[in-house]
């Protein structure tokens, strides 16, 4: 068994595709129209054959209250690995991304949390080398 897909629930798939590709830098993998929505996945250019992130519509009536409750408490919907949180924070801030939590040293990891503009907070995480 392998983990092939992970997903985020987004309020607008087209806007999400722009944010996740143009701003974050992921690559489009699939964009298959399915009625009013589309099957859209992106991958990291560092791992184009790796886990795909599905940009799923948050249409279910329970989805938005759930997302809003997470955002209110600053809880990220998911987390991405980066080599350098500080550098990513600088790069994304320059692109207008809003961070709810700037880079924070938590001991074994450094994390930061930003707004994906589609109704989610996303954490980026850098693992520090173990002494």
């Amino acid at each position: 068994m392998r983990i092939h897909l992970a997903g985020v629930l987004v309020d607008d798939q087209e806007k999400a595709l722009r944010f996740y590709t143009e701003t974050l830098g992921f690559q489009l993998k699939h964009n298959i129209p399915l009625g009013r929505h589309a099957w859209i996945t992106v991958v990291s250019e560092e791992a184009p054959e790796g886990t795909e992130l599905v940009l799923e519509p948050d249409e279910h009536p329970a989805a938005r209250p759930f997302k809003e409750a997470l955002v209110k408490d600053g809880i990220p919907y998911t987390s991405f690995a980066v080599d350098d949180v500080e550098a990513e924070h600088e790069r994304l801030t320059a692109k207008g991304v809003r961070f709810v939590q700037p880079p924070t040293d938590l001991g074994p990891v450094i994390t930061a949390v930003f707004d994906d503009t589609c109704g989610n907070l996303i954490q980026i995480q850098e693992e520090k080398p173990q002494p």
């Binding site: 809880i75 939590q101 949390v113």
Partner: peptide, 10 residues
């Protein structure tokens, strides 16, 4: 200026 999540993480 921390969220509940950041506080709990710390």
């Amino acid at each position: 200026g921390q969220s509940l999540f950041e506080l709990c993480s710390r």
